[in-house]
């Protein structure tokens, strides 16, 4: 008798969830607002737990990393010296470019974007998805489609946003597609996330023109033709370029500059591509 009763319950649950799946597939706006309300409550708790957790993680890491860090400081100091020299040189060139641009009446397309820093508060727990949440939302001016950077380069895009949190789909997610180009020759290509490649720390590079001069080691940046990504953000380096079987195009792989395993803080560019088009 008891068996019968729980069988009926499970059938009802299954039917209801299938109905809910169908409903939310066709009307996504309802689930979005429900989730929003739920996350507004959950996110502050997560932030707190995060802080506690980080104390322990940091403590564990600190003791082992100190030696390594000291060595790195020395290397970095040397690097800073050489970089500031290069920077000086580049600044001079940039002033010159500004002057010339003003002469030609061209807008400054590559200025430094306004950014806001955010903390990663949670990730999808399965290996299946590479999606994470950050602790800033609409109240901080975050909007859907804003670009998200790590300290080295492009890391993802805001896919949905709530009052105090935002969901970011990283470029290594299996559903991610980024229109990109090579930095020096402006050859268009497409950067695709693929979990079959991510374990080797790679992304797929597709749609390269057969005659394009793309070689291994080329810097790949976001393209100016992308509708969502702002131009000239570094994504990574091209590698293992090969000609496709159909002899019409080339493909290859991309090694991202962002280290996705240790992502705790990110920068969100608070300007949308669509805004700059309107300007």
């Amino acid at each position: 008798m008891k068996n019968q009763h729980s069988k009926i319950v499970i059938i009802i649950v299954v039917l209801l969830s299938i109905a809910s799946i169908t409903f939310s597939h066709y009307v996504p706006s309802v689930t979005l607002s429900v989730r929003n309300a739920f996350s507004s409550v959950i996110v502050p708790i997560q932030k707190g737990i995060n802080n506690i957790g980080m104390i322990f993680v940091r403590r564990a890491m600190n003791s082992t990393d100190l030696k390594e860090a000291n060595e790195r400081i020395k290397i970095l100091e040397a690097q800073v010296a050489s970089l500031s020299e290069t920077n000086n040189l580049l600044k001079t060139k940039s002033y010159e470019a500004d002057r010339l641009r003003a002469l030609y009446d061209l807008g400054d397309e590559y200025d430094i974007y306004p950014k806001t820093a955010a903390r990663v508060i949670s990730k999808d727990t399965d290996e299946w998805f590479q999606v994470f949440k950050i602790d800033k939302g609409t109240k901080d001016g975050i909007k859907v489609d804003m670009n998200v950077l790590s300290n080295k380069g492009l890391c993802g895009i805001v896919s949905s946003v709530g009052y105090n949190y935002a969901t970011v789909r990283s470029i290594i997610d299996d559903e991610s597609r980024v229109a990109a180009m090579t930095q020096h020759s402006f050859e268009a290509c497409m950067v695709e996330g693929d979990i079959t490649l991510y374990n080797n720390n790679r992304l797929k590079l597709t749609g390269i023109n057969m005659n394009a001069a793309v070689v291994d080691g080329d810097k790949i940046v976001t393209s100016n033709i992308s509708s969502k990504f702002l131009p000239n953000i570094l994504i990574g380096y091209a590698t293992d370029i090969y000609v496709n079987d159909n002899q019409l195009s080339k493909s290859g792989y991309l090694i991202p500059v962002t280290d996705f395993n240790n992502l705790t803080e990110v920068l969100v560019i608070t300007r949308l591509k669509s805004d700059s088009i309107k300007d």
Partner: peptide, 22 residues
């Protein structure tokens, strides 16, 4: 509630697993 995508996918699998093991 927490993850994106359609609503109900996880409810379906978790409750079936709970039932089957029960």
């Amino acid at each position: 509630m927490y993850f994106n995508g359609v609503f109900g996918l996880y409810i379906l699998i978790y409750s079936v697993i709970g039932f089957a093991n029960g």
